[in-house]
């Protein structure tokens, strides 16, 4: 997927922003924070996971999503978001 396709979705950018802030979250809670339903959230998380930006762990019925620590793409996104937030505060 091209970079413009990945970041063309406001919801995907919001998901990345949430994960950058809290570190790790389950699908229902991400959906609640986005204000959209579970299915839509799942769809966007799958796109981000296919791109290697996020990863998940399964605990029983719970799936926890976080940035993929081994992915250079994930590190780049985290750095970009951090720099953006920092600049906004100045």
């Amino acid at each position: 997927m091209n970079i413009e396709d990945v970041f063309s979705s406001k919801l995907r950018v919001k998901i990345l922003k949430i994960l950058a802030q809290v570190g790790e979250l389950n699908v229902s809670e991400i959906a609640r924070r986005l204000g959209v339903n579970y299915k839509t959230t799942n769809k966007h998380l799958k796109i981000l996971e296919d791109e290697g930006v996020v990863q998940h762990k399964v605990f029983g019925r719970i799936r926890l999503y976080r940035f993929n620590e081994r992915s250079p793409k994930a590190r780049a996104v985290q750095n970009f978001m951090e720099a953006w937030e920092h600049a906004n505060k100045q």
Binding site: G23, E24, L25, N26, S28, E29, G60, R61, I62, L64
Partner: peptide, 18 residues
Amino acid sequence: FHPNFPRRGYSAEELLRI
């Protein structure tokens, strides 16, 4: 270990397995 672990949707026994 997982600070944002959800509070609902499973039993104490499941949580112990987790």
